[in-house]
Design a binder for these strands. Structure first.
Ligand code: MN
Ligand code: MN
Ligand code: ZN
Ligand code: ZN
Lengths: 128, 128
DNA sequence: AATTTATTACAACTTAGTTGCAATAACAAA
DNA sequence: TTTGTTATTGCAACTAAGTTGTAATAAATT
């Protein structure tokens, strides 16, 4: 089940993603709202926002969970699949609005793909 | 540092990958060798085999660590990067010997990519 | 056989996330 | 506005995967 009541934690988390174009890790959100909400609440609200097709989640190279805004998804399903990029320098993570073509894989039926790219972001290239 | 001494745990783990074409999770290996080696030993030996370019590792959709044989890698570096496939039915994981082309990403320098595909493997398609 | 030191087992720890449950607060109905 | 229903929350306890420190052990060299 998704969000039913517009509680303070829901509004605060939605607002946080409104003011942020990139992805945010669950851990970072727990830190940010440390004084206002319990970590369990943060995890549970994020989970519901994902159910509703408002946020999507993925794991980074360390297995840490990140969330980012969806685009054109709903409770019926997450449609906008795309790769994610993590800067090895600053650690920031972004959604990449590009298509990656997956070739036909023999002997298997592929339903979804998780793609995580690593490298250096523009801001970190400058500050060498 | 990689492997220096051919100990029993090193031989047992190497042997396990010899007899297995797919990937094996660290957790599964710890279970298999539960009566013979401590889990710390398993983790440390796997780590060294990866340093030596004999095995490579990656995380699955749950953030669990998997290992598989390398092909043409060495202590100087892991060269054979490729996608991995996890069957949503049986949970088996394989290395996919295919090239996935990553398009140029603007404003970022991409160094590496982790690609995890999910779907149904051949054996599981049959048993519907 | 003696020596050196890489490797191991063990226990304790860390980190990220989950679960059960009583107290609280949305929000609809009266 | 007050009341009643129940979704949501905070808290504490727990789980799972992996890491760390260290004394004992066992490869491999002399
Ligand atoms: Mn995204
Ligand atoms: Mn592989
Ligand atoms: Zn950066
Ligand atoms: Zn299968």
């Amino acid at each position: 089940m998704g969000i039913v009541r517009k509680t303070k934690s829901v509004e605060a988390l939605l607002n946080e993603f409104q003011n942020n174009s990139g992805a945010i890790s669950a851990i970072e959100l727990i830190k940010r709202f440390n004084s206002q909400f319990n970590k369990t609440t943060v995890y549970r609200v994020l989970d519901k926002l994902e159910d509703d097709g408002i946020l999507h989640s993925f794991l980074d190279i360390k297995g840490i969970k990140w969330y980012a805004k969806c685009n054109g998804c709903s409770a019926n399903g997450h449609l906008d699949t795309h790769p994610h990029f993590q800067c090895m320098d600053c650690g920031n993570v972004d959604c990449l609005p590009v298509e990656v073509h997956i070739p036909k894989i023999s002997n298997r039926e592929v339903f979804s793909s998780q793609i995580l790219l690593q490298g250096i972001c523009n801001r970190c290239i400058g500050s060498s």
